[in-house]
Amino acid sequence: MLLAATLAAAIVALSGGFRRADATGGTMPVSGAGVPITSEAFIVTPLCAWSADQRPGQLASKEGEPRYLILRAKVESRSRDWLAMRAYLDKDVVWLPQGHGDPVLAERSQRADDATLRFDLGPGLPVLVDFIWELPSGMAPPATSTWGMFKRRFVERSHASGESMWLQDGPGWKFTLPVSQDCAGGDA
């Protein structure tokens, strides 16, 4: 399983990640807030994004701490099993600081309602999730930002081990949202 995951990651890296669409000659759909994105594994509906001095649920920020970029999304697993789906989600939803190119994984993801870090994605149960990135030092919070989502497909019997597994299957979608100071209305 580890070998297959490494191989899949290498293929994604070699393919250039979320390259500029015109560089590959292909087109990647770019959507906005409230539009569900459906992969074989997840339905992800981006709701809103904002920047803040502290992560949601954090009691207080200390001086000199970084700013954070937060994306709130409604997430539903399409798998039959809870197993590993949370870890896959964290690998599939990525930030594209330049709007294309190398994807950046979230520093953490947590429940939007009570900032719980440890939770599963049960089949068919929608959960509001906050994905959090630390903004690079010196980077001003952008007015809008772009994120990407990888495809993922289920393999009943892998060639390497004969086990079933979910494989990341290359860049799939991009979405752009305005970055505000709060997320009013983002709890729907």
């Binding site: 809870w82 197993l83 009570d114 719980t116 870090l117 440890r118 599963d120 089949p123």
Partner: peptide, 10 residues
């Protein structure tokens, strides 16, 4: 469909 028991955090 399979759902794991909620962890002690929540």
């Amino acid at each position: 469909r399979v759902y794991r028991a909620a962890p002690a955090d929540r």
